[in-house]
Simulated scan of single mutants.
Amino acid sequence: MISRKAANSINGRIVFLAISIIINSFFNALTVSTQMGSAIWTASAVSLSHWTQISLGNILFLEGVVVAFTNLALLGHFDWFRLVRNLLFITPFSYLLAGFETMFVKMSVPQLALGWRILLDIGGLFGVAAAVSLYQRANIIMHPNDDLPYILRFRFMHGSPVYSQWMSNVPPLIVVVLVFVIKGHWYSFGFGTIYNILTQGYLIGWADRHFLPILHHHLEFKN
Rank of each mutant, 00 (worst) to 15 (best):
I59Q: 04
I59S: 04
I59G: 04
L60P: 01
F61L: 14
F61M: 08
F61N: 02
F61Q: 02
L62C: 09
L62D: 01
L62A: 10
L62R: 03
G64I: 08
V65K: 06
V66T: 10
V67G: 04
V67I: 15
V67M: 08
V67W: 02
A68S: 15
A68K: 10
A68P: 08
F69W: 04
T70S: 11
T70P: 00
T70D: 01
T70N: 08
T70H: 09
T70F: 15
N71G: 10
N71T: 03
A73R: 13
A73I: 13
A73S: 10
A73K: 13
A73C: 12
A73F: 14
L74Q: 01
L74M: 07
L75W: 03
G76D: 00
G76T: 02
H77G: 10
W80G: 02
W80D: 00
W80L: 13
W80E: 02
F81H: 09
F81C: 05
F81G: 09
R82L: 14
R82A: 13
R82W: 12
R82P: 01
L83D: 06
V84Y: 01
V84N: 00
R85L: 11
R85N: 11
R85E: 05
N86K: 02
L87K: 02
L87P: 02
L88W: 07
L88T: 10
F89N: 13
I90A: 08
I90E: 06
T91R: 00
T91H: 01
T91M: 14
T91P: 00
P92I: 06
F93D: 10
F93N: 11
F93G: 04
S94F: 10
Y95A: 01
L96E: 06
L97H: 07
L97E: 12
L97W: 08
A98S: 15
A98M: 08
A98G: 03
A98L: 07
A98T: 05
F100D: 04
F100E: 05
F100W: 11
E101P: 03
E101S: 10
E101Q: 13
E101F: 12
E101D: 12
T102W: 14
T102R: 15
T102L: 15
T102D: 12
M103D: 11
F104C: 12
F104K: 07
F104H: 09
F104Y: 15
V105K: 14
V105P: 02
V105H: 11
